[in-house]
Amino acid sequence: MSISKSYRLTPQAPYRFDYFQKRVENSSNSYLYSIGENALSRAHIIGGHPVLVHITLDTPSTPNAPVIRLDVQGAHSDARADQAADIWRHMLSIDRPLLPFYQQAATDPVLKTITSDLSGMHLLLDSSPFESTILSIIGQQVNLTFAENLKRSLVELCASSIDVNGSTHYAFPSPEQIAALNYEQLRAMKFSQRKAEYVIDFARGVANGSIDLHSLQGMSNAEAIDYLIKLRGIGRWTAECVLLFGLGRPDLLPAADIGLRNAIQHFWGLDHQPTEQEVREFAVPWRGHESYFTYYLWTALGLARAAQKQQTVTPKAKRKNSKNMAERDKE
């Protein structure tokens, strides 16, 4: 017998749920969610069964201090419902107040402006280190659209779903489900041979216990990265993604990341792209919140480039776009 259970989440201000939802909408993982107005739903496998979590803004709520209602449906016990709620507390960064990070950022004029502009933006985390690793492996060396197609095909192949109010919600597969697949099944869905092997072999290691992801919790960043990169198909970039988005480590510095290096060059007006070592030296004042500084700089650079691209649209192109929009309005 399944049960339903509701929770009320009150993250410390500032907290912008709309930033989180926009991030979901623009992510290559958006296929995992059902998205509504100030509402998100997603299924998870809890205790071997699919469970649906639905979140909405409750009242009273303000943009910087929302009250979030979390409803769990299909859980087989109170404990399983609590487990689903805990997953979302992690994904939504509910228990990670931003004020200490903002106080640290306030010592640098550039970072003070960026954090002010993006105030309330929290890390969007994956539901588990396993999910994060699989998603990162799939995303290696392919564009976002192709990555999303591969991810979606894997989820639909394993076909764990729950039907609620006439809608079907697919859950990200468990290690055991992916471990039961063969390489040819993924090759038929346009996975490369190596990517198919990396995904299935990793899942088999987690399923049989030879890969212990729970042990990562007790490791330092360096120890966890060293553990992960020994596994086939996982390089430093993937390992850093797992620590940042899977475990939610606040102090991870992906110093070799091109996006971070470009952001530092852009916002501090450097005459060259900083090297990995220069990034490490530059980021010494960020200690303790390196993940947040990185996340904010990635976001701010994306927004700056989008604005710059918009400004470079020629007057002729603007007129053409306006004409096209007017014609569509008539249809």
Rank of each mutant, 00 (worst) to 15 (best):
I162D: 08
M1D: 12
A256V: 00
H76E: 06
D95G: 13
P66Y: 07
G36Y: 04
R187Y: 09
K22M: 06
D201L: 04
D108T: 08
P50F: 04
D212G: 06
L9A: 07
A75Q: 08
N38G: 08
V164W: 15
G36C: 00
K330P: 10
H169D: 01
Y102F: 15
W298Q: 05
V67K: 03
H266Q: 09
T113D: 12
I162N: 08
I162F: 08
R232I: 07
F17D: 08
I137S: 05
S93W: 11
E184F: 11
Q12G: 06
Q141K: 13
Y19D: 08
L157R: 05
D86K: 02
Q310N: 13
V72K: 13
R261A: 05
P100Y: 13
Q273S: 02
R8L: 15
Q140R: 15
H122Y: 10
P173H: 02
R42S: 03
Q217I: 11
R42V: 03
N38T: 07
I234L: 10
F172K: 03
P129N: 08
E290I: 04
Q277C: 07
N324S: 02
E37A: 09
A239H: 03
L124Y: 08
L125A: 05
D163K: 14
Q21H: 03
I134T: 04
L260Y: 04
D257H: 04
D71N: 15
L157E: 03
A300H: 14
I114V: 14
D251H: 00
F130H: 01
L124A: 06
A75S: 07
V164R: 15
Q217W: 14
Y15Q: 00
L270T: 05
I87H: 06
E327S: 02
F293K: 04
P50E: 02
V24Q: 00
R96K: 15
D163M: 12
Y198P: 09
T115Y: 13
L99C: 12
A224P: 14
H214V: 03
D251F: 03
Q141F: 12
P66E: 07
R96H: 12
E25Y: 05
S128Y: 04
L252I: 01
E131P: 01
E156A: 01
K22C: 00
Q12H: 07
K112S: 14
V313T: 15
E281P: 09
G246L: 11
L111F: 14
T10Q: 15
E276Q: 15
G36T: 00
